[in-house]
Simulated assay, not measured.
Amino acid sequence: MIVTHALTKRFGHTPAVDAVDLHVGEGDRYGLLGPNGSGKTTLVRMVLGLVYATSGDIEVLGRPVPKRIAEVLPDVGALMEGPGAYGHLSGRRNLALLDAAGPRGDRRTRRRRIGEALERVGLATVDQRPVKTYSLGMRQRLGLAGALLSRPRLLILDEPTNGLDPQGIKEIRELLTALNQDGTTVFLSSHLLAEIEQLCTRVGIVDRGRLVIENDLTVLRAATGRVLVATPDAAHAVAVLDGQLESRDGDRLVIRHDDPAALNARLVGAGVRVRSIRAERRTLEQVVIDATGPGSDRFGEAR
């Protein structure tokens, strides 16, 4: 759906995006993760043909961008950070104007499509209010509704949960997951580790303009070779494990072992009551820190 090769953008002598090879496959929920100023927004803008690359190639839906961007846009929905709107007009009226100017502004289906989009983002009951009365989160929802009007094959979003409260973030996450399950490929940028970890199936990490990691989230969050055990018989378990204990915090143990099922059988067989047991996996935060080194604390904290 999106492929770039050696994509580079310089502002003067400063590289904002530096030789990025990006691969977003059909059906992905792809999260582009990076701190503010890492080049994410510039990269997204180049993919949409809003900013010209200094060098390199971009292909979206099998067509070169920006050369054939007009052929691509009808199948792409996009929301850039800080969606614009006419404040004195209602949300519904803003969407009508946006649809009329868009590549697929079919007037016969406009009212129905606008209603469906507003319903999906949770604005159906406030669609007649002037946008100037909207909160930042409501404006963000309106921008997302605009991106959904054409029922796109590819949805490109820059910081889509900006300004939303925790409940709103959860609702948008569920909406994007549902859209993806219905066949829409989702490509979004964010600096929030927790959102990418909960939503995305594939992750790219950008640091100082370079794509330092790109892989499936399940691969990145590989098992560490340790097992987390909670047991009311902690002392007995430690004796049974005979040197495999890495750490203990009350009734919670960290054990060097790569097979939770086998470890559970061993403990239970020795008479240890096991309250919970699971393999320890790397967090996305650990992946980011390992990949970016100093400065990685610029990322948003988990919510």
Rank of each mutant, 00 (worst) to 15 (best):
D127M: 09
D127H: 09
Q128K: 12
Q128H: 14
Q128Y: 05
R129A: 13
R129Q: 15
R129K: 15
R129T: 03
R129L: 13
P130H: 05
V131N: 01
V131D: 02
V131W: 00
V131Q: 03
K132I: 05
K132Y: 12
T133V: 05
T133H: 12
S135D: 10
L136R: 15
L136D: 07
L136S: 12
G137H: 05
G137D: 07
G137E: 08
G137A: 07
M138D: 01
M138E: 02
R139S: 08
Q140L: 07
R141Y: 09
L142M: 09
L142K: 04
L142Y: 02
L142G: 07
G143I: 02
G143L: 07
L144D: 07
L144T: 03
L144A: 10
G146C: 08
G146V: 05
G146N: 08
G146S: 10
A147K: 09
A147Y: 03
L148D: 03
L149V: 08
L149Y: 06
S150H: 12
R151M: 08
R151K: 14
R151D: 15
P152Q: 12
P152D: 14
P152R: 09
R153T: 11
L154N: 07
L154A: 10
L154I: 09
L155D: 10
I156D: 05
I156Y: 04
L157N: 06
L157D: 06
L157Q: 05
D158H: 07
D158G: 09
E159I: 09
E159D: 11
E159Q: 12
P160N: 12
P160K: 10
P160H: 11
T161M: 13
N162P: 05
N162I: 09
G163K: 00
G163R: 00
G163V: 00
L164E: 14
L164Q: 15
L164F: 14
D165G: 11
D165R: 11
Q167L: 12
G168Q: 10
G168I: 04
G168F: 06
I169R: 15
I169T: 13
I169K: 12
K170F: 13
K170R: 15
K170T: 13
K170S: 11
E171H: 07
E171K: 03
E171V: 00
E171F: 00
E171T: 01
I172G: 03
I172D: 02
R173T: 02
R173H: 08
E174G: 01
E174A: 14
E174P: 00
L175W: 02
L176R: 01
L176G: 03
T177M: 12
T177E: 13
A178E: 15
A178M: 10
A178T: 13
L179Y: 06
L179K: 07
L179R: 14
G183Y: 05
G183P: 02
G183S: 08
T184V: 13
T185L: 09
T185G: 05
T185K: 03
V186E: 01
F187P: 00
L188V: 01
S189K: 06
S190Y: 03
S190Q: 07
L192Q: 15
L192K: 07
L192A: 12
L193F: 08
E195Q: 13
I196P: 00
I196R: 01
I196E: 04
I196D: 04
E197C: 06
E197T: 10
Q198E: 15
Q198M: 14
Q198I: 11
Q198W: 04
L199V: 10
L199N: 01
L199M: 14
C200S: 14
C200G: 05
R202Y: 06
V203R: 03
